[in-house]
């Protein structure tokens, strides 16, 4: 029924997604992997980004195991009752029961990384129970010395025993709705997103691809979207106040990219 060479008309527009790291119910920023700096209340910061024009928010709980997720669940409930845009939550989700609790608290989507690699069946379970739109699989990819792509887990600290293309294919086959693609070789370098990797998916790739890692300025967002990203996620340049979501959107509009404004 679908022709892979055809271009399909779509009114969907690229999304801009600020990402907030949270710990014990507060937004945090890591400093040299040691202490965490308190950046504020998740609901207030999310509302600030919503007002700036964010299309969606992602919360990553970086201390999820510490209190058995209760602080994260409380946060999700508060966010769900104060935000009027969709949001995803990730960090420390291991079982379908964890997922049940986050959806019950009001999350629109969950994001999996390590748990998906360790237990790929969880992707299928979530997709079957809640629909593929409810699950985002975060794929952390790095280039080795030979220039080959490798998959990492545990916040990018452990090499996974799975080949890049095989893993992408499995994530799609198991029913993930979106892939959150972080190019670790670009992350934090301020050299832009990995546009070559983004363009390798092609316009008819069956799930949406969110570009993450490496954004330094507005042109990087233009380049990622031109390379085919369905959405762009960024953290640092928003949190540091270098750009507002609105300023990035203005720049995208100036570059003739359809954006919600």
């Amino acid at each position: 029924m679908l022709d892979n060479n055809k271009t399909y008309a779509s009114d969907l527009i690229p999304r801009l997604i600020p990402c907030l790291d949270v710990a014990l119910g507060r937004v945090v920023k890591g400093v040299n992997f040691k202490g965490l700096v308190d950046m504020g209340d998740p609901v207030e910061l999310a509302q600030k980004y919503e007002q700036q024009g964010a299309d969606e928010i992602v919360f990553l709980d970086i201390k999820a195991s510490v209190d058995n997720q209760q602080s994260a669940l409380d946060m999700v409930y508060q966010v769900a009752t104060h935000l009027s845009i969709p949001f995803a939550v990730g960090g420390g989700i291991k079982t379908i029961e964890d997922v049940d609790r986050f959806f019950h608290a009001g999350a629109d989507k969950v994001t999996l990384n390590t748990a998906a690699v360790q237990n790929p069946a969880l992707i299928s379970q979530i997709s079957t129970k809640y629909g593929s739109q409810s699950i985002v699989v975060a794929v952390d990819v790095n280039k080795n010395e030979q220039g080959e792509l490798a998959i990492y887990t545990h916040g990018g600290s452990q090499l996974a025993d799975v080949a890049y293309q095989a893993w992408i294919d499995e994530v799609v086959d198991r029913g993930a709705g979106e892939i959150l693609l972080t190019a670790m070789h670009k992350d934090g370098t301020g050299s832009g997103f990995d546009c070559e990797l983004l363009s390798s998916f092609g316009p008819n790739f069956p799930v949406q691809v969110i570009a993450s890692g490496g954004a330094k300025g507005p042109q990087d967002f233009v380049d990622a979207i031109a390379a085919g990203a369905d959405a762009v996620l960024a953290a640092g340049l928003f949190h540091r106040g270098e750009y507002t979501v609105g300023e990035i959107k203005d720049y995208l509009i100036q570059n003739n990219i359809r954006i919600r404004k």
Partner: peptide
């Protein structure tokens, strides 16, 4: 009939109603 299913995200409404005209909605 679109290869990326489900449709997830924002689209501008084509509407003659003032309450919806040219607004972006989440699908």
């Amino acid at each position: 009939r679109h290869p990326k299913a489900p449709m997830v995200g924002w689209a501008k409404l084509n509407s003659y109603k003032l309450s919806m005209q040219d607004q972006f909605a989440y699908f």
